[in-house]
């Protein structure tokens, strides 16, 4: 990516669970402001890679550097504080809470009022709460979920929950957002909305996006660059065009269906 600084550097990640090698020496760079996709068949290690970046898994070997700072052994909360946020393949919202409360928890790292002033509420705490409520309302506007802001998340339809999870990740005001299959299980219209949101997040808010997604149409359309994983190894990397032409990728990942895939 011409001229853009490297924001995330992932070097030689090895991750295994007992006998299962989820990742074997995977490395790549993500440039500031790009949409970077990780693709590969089921079980290739995509989610594991996101988990290493967000801190849920700690790789046995390798290094992860975010904006010049090594985070390989940092806990997830610290990574959130320095600007990494994510959504999950299986929705991981606070199901018993309202949409608003979910988003306000997303503001956690930006809030300053602790339990002493918080318990008094009046004064600084109230001002802060209102200010952050406004921030959260902006996101609610942006993702068009005004009508459900006071609904309990667990009662919402699947597609809406996915959107709320994206909203919560945005509430952190991250520099880098990791999206694990944000369109999975969505209908065409919901998918189109989601694509639009991702593009806006990237272009208008300037947030770097790492996207894991199975919908190849979407991936090829919106990604700046793509890395392809298979059985825990990197088998290809490049622009959508380069990846589509890469014979290893075509053989390993696209297999017999390459005609339908490449012929779009």
């Amino acid at each position: 990516m011409d001229g853009r600084p490297v924001q995330l550097q992932v070097d030689d990640i090895h991750l295994s669970f007992g006998g299962v090698n989820a990742l074997m020496g995977v490395g790549f760079q993500v440039y500031k402001g790009e949409i970077f996709s990780i693709i590969g068949p089921n079980g290739a290690g995509k989610t594991s890679m996101l988990n290493c970046i967000s801190g849920r898994y700690h790789p046995q070997r390798g290094r992860i550097v975010f904006e010049g700072r090594e985070i390989t052994n940092q806990p997830p909360a610290t990574r959130a504080e320095i600007g990494i946020s994510r959504t999950f393949q299986n929705i991981a919202l606070f199901k018993g809470m309202t949409v608003l409360d979910n988003l306000l928890i997303g503001r956690h790292i930006h809030l300053k009022t602790g339990f002493l002033k918080g318990g008094i509420y009046l004064g600084p705490c109230q001002r802060e709460e209102i200010e952050h409520r406004e921030f959260v309302e902006d996101i609610i506007d942006f993702l068009e979920i005004e009508h459900i802001r006071k609904k309990i998340v667990g009662t919402l339809a699947y597609g809406l929950q996915k959107r709320v999870e994206l909203a919560r990740a945005l509430a952190l005001d991250p520099k880098l957002i990791l999206l694990d299959e944000p369109m999975a299980g969505m209908n065409l219209e919901e998918t189109e909305d989601m694509v639009r949101y991702i593009l806006d997040i990237n272009q208008e808010r300037g947030i770097t996006v790492i996207l894991v997604e199975h919908d190849m149409g979407v991936v090829m359309d919106i990604s700046d660059r793509i890395v392809v994983l298979d059985f825990g190894q990197k088998i290809g990397e490049g622009t959508p065009d380069e990846v589509q032409k890469n014979p290893d990728v075509v053989r390993a990942y696209l297999g017999a269906e390459d005609e339908t895939f490449l012929g779009r």
């Binding site: 967000s54 801190g55 849920r56 806990p75 997830p76 909360a77 959130a80 504080e81 946020s85 994510r86 999950f88 991981a92 919202l93 606070f94 199901k95 018993g96 809470m97 409360d101 306000l104 928890i105 997303g106 956690h108 790292i109 919560r168 952190l172």
Partner: peptide, 17 residues
């Protein structure tokens, strides 16, 4: 709110910082 988040889904709470 952080207490409740820890109770409801501690992995998510962690990801929220």
């Amino acid at each position: 709110r952080a207490f409740v988040a820890v109770r409801d889904h501690y992995l998510s709470a962690e990801i929220m910082g």
